[in-house]
Simulated assay, not measured.
Amino acid sequence: MDISFKVNHPITTDQFIGLLESSTLGERRPIHDRECMEGVVSNSNLLISAWDEDLLVGIARSVTDFHYACYLSDLAVHKGYQRSGIGKRLQSLTQEQLGPLCKLILIAAPAANSYYGQIGYTHNDRCWVLDPGATIGN
């Protein structure tokens, strides 16, 4: 298997949705909302992708300032390519694009929660999420 990795290589919305569907991440993303998915792809400012020839088999999609914080929003690897080191390589390549003080931040999928501690991430229980439609009150 000869996988190539690319930094900020253009991907289509259909390629992105197809990868999410072929990984476990599609279950937790609004893949049936095309407008949302188009916005997700077009507004990311760091995309590291893994390719098996013309097939997108992995992605690390981030929003970052490159200096202080990088939010790794999506890390997805096609089910047929998992456990081959692609996910780790995507994260390493993401980290290589960042400044020396930039933190890599993510919210783990429930099934992957134990994975990140094993590869060097520190657990932080201070994350807060405001769901769409929720009102900020006093």
Rank of each mutant, 00 (worst) to 15 (best):
46 L>A: 00
109 A>Y: 00
8 N>W: 05
37 M>V: 13
65 D>G: 04
24 T>L: 12
50 A>W: 07
99 G>C: 09
19 L>P: 13
80 G>V: 04
121 Y>Q: 15
23 S>N: 12
76 A>E: 06
76 A>F: 03
64 T>R: 09
87 G>E: 02
35 E>D: 10
75 L>T: 06
36 C>L: 13
119 I>T: 09
89 R>L: 06
74 D>R: 04
59 I>F: 09
29 R>Q: 07
3 I>T: 08
126 R>H: 10
5 F>T: 01
106 L>K: 09
136 I>T: 11
129 V>D: 05
115 Y>S: 14
66 F>D: 10
37 M>Y: 03
77 V>D: 05
46 L>K: 03
40 V>P: 03
115 Y>D: 11
12 T>E: 13
5 F>V: 01
66 F>L: 08
55 L>Y: 04
21 E>P: 03
126 R>E: 05
84 S>P: 01
93 L>R: 13
29 R>M: 14
50 A>H: 02
84 S>N: 03
120 G>W: 12
60 A>M: 10
77 V>T: 08
77 V>K: 07
68 Y>F: 14
118 Q>A: 14
87 G>P: 07
114 S>E: 13
71 Y>R: 09
91 Q>K: 04
7 V>C: 02
114 S>G: 05
107 I>C: 02
16 F>W: 12
46 L>R: 06
97 Q>H: 10
135 T>H: 03
110 P>T: 11
136 I>C: 08
126 R>L: 04
136 I>L: 12
28 R>P: 02
75 L>G: 04
73 S>Q: 14
7 V>A: 02
74 D>L: 08
80 G>I: 00
14 D>V: 04
41 V>N: 11
103 K>T: 04
46 L>I: 05
131 D>Q: 15
58 G>E: 01
70 C>H: 09
16 F>S: 06
53 E>M: 06
118 Q>R: 14
123 H>Q: 14
54 D>Q: 03
50 A>I: 02
46 L>C: 01
136 I>E: 02
132 P>E: 13
95 Q>Y: 14
94 T>N: 09
124 N>C: 07
44 S>E: 06
49 S>T: 15
97 Q>I: 14
13 T>I: 08
64 T>Q: 11
